[in-house]
């Protein structure tokens, strides 16, 4: 197809796709009374309104706290997921042991179950243990990712057996092989999974909404929701400012490592 048609069409669709972002940023720069006049101008009438909006967010919303919570939760989840899934994936791919078929069968079965299903009993258990409202409550249920086990198993299967045998001859134990031979060679799978996991848990609302009541441990998603329902009221300008701030980190990370993000999501998406 000629670029003469293709590019304008793409530009039009792209503009539609970006509309929420454009209006979000535009609204965050306007004064509240200007917003209420519902003008169709993208640029604010007063150049200083943005300071008021972002200032209000800065004063009333513990932005740094939310972002830090998000980093702790996503980082914790990812670390445990890798810690559990990488050795298991290696064992399933490269070691023969009785019961291996059962473990792999369990992985395949686990792939079928959406995370919403075990949520109820987990909630009951956490509330009985008094663990609600904590980082632990946010992190622990997601520490096991059968998808990660599956992904790493597939990837390790394609590693040549000679590599593993050479490492054994060099005197490495199986544990050392996992972290010093297998994982460094599975870097593409690891980054793809890391991106997939972080994007999923950074955006997740369902589980934090269940186990958190206050804002002390709130992730960005819950923080925005809290500000919207409890504090912003009709102040859409400040709300849009808060949304802009909270959306920015992941979007910026994406823009910096665009290819990795797209490929990561595509490879994990196609397998999961």
């Amino acid at each position: 197809m000629a670029d003469r048609w293709r590019l304008p069409l793409l530009a039009l669709l792209g503009l539609a796709m970006l509309a929420p972002y454009i209006w979000m940023v535009s609204a965050s720069l306007k004064a509240t009374d200007e917003l209420f006049r519902a003008s169709l101008s993208l640029l604010p009438e007063t150049g200083t309104a943005w300071m008021e909006n972002y200032g209000r967010v800065w004063r009333e919303v513990p932005v740094a706290q939310y972002l830090l919570n998000g980093v702790i939760v996503c980082g914790g989840i990812l670390a445990f997921q890798l810690l559990f899934a990488v050795p298991a994936g290696y064992a399933l791919a490269k070691l023969r042991f009785p019961g291996r078929e059962w473990v792999f069968g369990a992985v395949m079965l686990g792939l079928l179950v959406p995370p919403h299903v075990p949520a109820l009993p987990l909630y009951v258990a956490f509330s009985q243990l008094g663990w609600l409202n904590s980082y632990a409550a946010l992190i622990i249920p997601s520490t096991i990712s059968v998808f990660a086990i599956f992904l790493f198993r597939q990837f390790f299967k394609s590693l040549p057996d000679e590599l593993i045998q050479a490492a054994r001859l060099d005197g490495m134990g199986e544990g050392a092989i996992v972290w010093r031979v297998a994982l460094p060679n599975a870097w593409p799978a690891a980054t793809a999974f890391a991106i997939f996991s972080v994007v999923a848990h950074w955006n997740d609302l369902f589980w934090p909404l269940i186990v958190l009541t206050g804002t002390d441990y709130a992730t960005p998603a819950l923080g925005v929701l809290h500000f919207r329902t409890e504090e912003a009221g009709d102040d859409f300008a400040a709300l849009m400012a808060a949304c802009t701030i909270m959306t920015a980190p992941l979007v910026l990370a994406f823009l910096f490592a665009q290819r990795r993000f797209v490929e990561g999501i595509a490879t994990t998406g196609l397998k999961g």
Partner: peptide, 9 residues
């Protein structure tokens, strides 16, 4: 990759 809650708002 955008925060769903924020974009919903």
């Amino acid at each position: 990759v955008s925060l769903t809650v924020a974009m919903a708002a």
